[in-house]
Simulated scan of single mutants.
Amino acid sequence: MRVLVGADIGGTKLAIRVAAPDGAIRADVEIPSTGWEAAPVERAARWLLDRVNSVLPAGDEIAALGVGAQGCDTQEHCARLAAAFESSGTAATVVNDAALLVPAAGLASGIGVIAGTGSIAVGAAADGTVLFAGGWGWVLGDEGSAPAIVREATKAALAAYDAGQPDDGLLSQLLAHYGAAEPPGLARAVNDLPTSGSWGPAAPAVFTAAAAGSALALAVVDDAADHLCTLVTRLRARGAAGSTVVVAGSVVIGQPLLADRLRDRLGAAHPDLDLRLLDVPPVAGAVALARAGHQAAGTRATANHL
């Protein structure tokens, strides 16, 4: 059977969905995205095709591939990666992983915001030009992502300690997460392994502290919401179309406090926008892209025969 395949490549996992032409799901898997790099594009295409082929049901053949990929942060890069798939004999549509959110929600236009392992916002102008904001990585930014929240929370907790302020609950939560007895041990634990894989898992400790009344933790969450709202503001200033902001990612979906704070800020800054928390896997958007690409190819083939 010729099937439509969607792939959502994030910072920690790869989701692959295989769908029949009638929409029936034939395979739906998640595996670690270890080893994924968006460049060079030839290697990236082979990396994904190897994993897609390993989960294709016996006898299935890829009719079209839709890909949302972390690291494809310009329209040109996405086009080059799509061309690399084409050179391997696979018709593909490639976008940034945040650009999967709008089609996954069943919308033709809107702004997608991811806050998970990283953070980024993606939209499109009326002429189809793809627009990006954020996504610069947890060292430089990615505010609102799990690693960035932990980075800012650790800085806030240690600054308060330096100022002689009593622990309001944030420091103790971070100490417990990292198994450190004192603030210097926390600093060593965070500094000695400065990776998203080390920092990100501590994010729930920040939200636990905020829920227990930590003003420092709540300020970190509020700042994250401010930054995510700013990403939307920047895209709208550049002409991003649509009336809905579709949000996904492990942090904003898994932590209602961040989602609520973001909703408040969007309501104040952009009262004409609706906020929608994505309630289906983003990989559904990748399948929608594959379907649209396959239909467009069929239309072109029909026109060429006329």
Rank of each mutant, 00 (worst) to 15 (best):
A91W: 03
L186E: 11
G6L: 12
R300Q: 13
E37P: 00
L289T: 06
G200Y: 06
A288L: 08
Q295W: 02
A121L: 10
T230F: 04
T302P: 00
A91K: 05
D260M: 08
L100F: 15
D22V: 08
G128E: 08
T90K: 11
D226I: 04
A202K: 03
V283E: 04
A133L: 09
A209L: 08
A163K: 15
L101I: 10
E86C: 02
A108F: 03
D192F: 04
R188A: 14
L49A: 03
A301K: 05
G59V: 01
L107G: 09
A210L: 13
A237M: 07
V122P: 05
R2N: 15
A38H: 03
A83M: 09
P201H: 12
P201K: 05
L56T: 10
A160H: 06
A217M: 11
E152M: 13
G213D: 06
R2K: 12
P184D: 10
A163G: 14
A241G: 03
A108M: 05
G66A: 05
A296V: 02
T12R: 02
P204H: 07
C229E: 07
A98G: 11
H177A: 05
L49M: 07
Q173D: 10
S198G: 00
R300G: 00
V3P: 01
L49E: 03
G59S: 02
P256N: 15
A153M: 15
A211S: 14
N53T: 10
A159F: 09
G239N: 14
E61I: 00
V280Q: 13
A133R: 09
I16N: 04
A104W: 04
V287E: 12
G200T: 05
W199S: 00
S214K: 06
G35Y: 09
N304I: 07
S88L: 15
D22E: 13
Q75L: 12
S198A: 13
V139M: 15
E182R: 15
E30F: 00
D274R: 15
A92S: 03
G285Y: 07
I9Y: 03
L107E: 12
D222N: 15
T129F: 08
G89H: 04
G112E: 15
V55C: 14
Q70M: 10
L100R: 14
A121F: 04
G11Q: 02
E76M: 11
G71V: 08
T244P: 01
A181E: 14
G116C: 13
L56S: 11
L228W: 02
D142A: 11
L101V: 09
P204W: 04
T302H: 14
P57R: 10
R17T: 00
A211K: 04
A180C: 11
G249A: 11
G164Y: 08
A121N: 09
F207W: 12
A268K: 10
P183G: 09
A159G: 05
L101T: 08
A209Q: 07
V245I: 11
G135A: 09
D272V: 06
E152C: 09
A219N: 02
A19C: 10
V102R: 00
G285D: 02
A209V: 04
P271W: 11
E86Q: 11
E143V: 09
